[in-house]
């Protein structure tokens, strides 16, 4: 936890009302936070392996996840919940040993993140939280597209980012 808790009257989101998770949305936001933790861990692992020309993208993307994670933790604390901590380590679906497998891991991390935030959209009526989750879903989908391109995957996009199944 690198950021202090600004409390309910603290830093507001860039646009729209403050996200306020309640009820089943809290658990969905916790799952999204867990996905953000996993994404940060993945970027940490992949950063030293991705192709030279993608290093800057990787560090920008990691920073975006960190910012999102910190805002998510603040939101949960403001709602009276205890943010879930990161796991000590995660199990990538495949061994990560080179640029190709590192890129694939990042696509997986972004896909997981998109799915978790889309699930939040369906579990809240709070407009601030909907906006927050939509921004998170959209940016994860765009980053996934970029990493698919870097990994020469095809297709570069899916028709319904974040949709389960």
């Amino acid at each position: 936890m690198t950021s202090p808790n600004p409390g309910p009257s603290g830093q507001s989101s860039a646009n729209g009302p403050q996200p306020r998770p309640t009820g089943e949305a809290v658990e969905a936001v916790q799952r999204a936070l867990a996905a953000e933790h996993a994404a940060e861990w993945s970027y940490g692992l992949a950063a030293v392996l991705v192709a030279k020309e993608m290093e800057k993208t990787a560090s920008t993307d990691l920073a975006a996840h960190r910012t999102r994670r910190e805002a998510t933790e603040r939101m949960l604390r403001d709602a009276g919940a205890t943010p879930v901590p990161p796991q000590p380590a995660y199990q990538p679906p495949k061994p990560v040993t080179d640029a190709a497998s590192a890129t694939e891991l990042l696509v997986t991390a972004e896909t997981d993140t998109a799915g978790a935030w889309r699930a939040v959209l369906e579990r809240t009526d709070d407009q601030g939280l909907r906006q927050f989750a939509l921004d998170a879903l959209t940016s994860a989908a765009v980053r996934a597209t970029r990493w698919r391109r870097a990994g020469r995957q095809s297709p570069l996009t899916v028709p319904f980012p974040g949709q389960p199944g």
């Binding site: 959209l121 879903l137 959209t138 980012p161």
Partner: peptide
């Protein structure tokens, strides 16, 4: 509908 609309936006 929010999930579907979110996915269309992201797509």
């Amino acid at each position: 509908r929010a999930g579907l609309l979110g996915s269309v936006t992201a797509s």
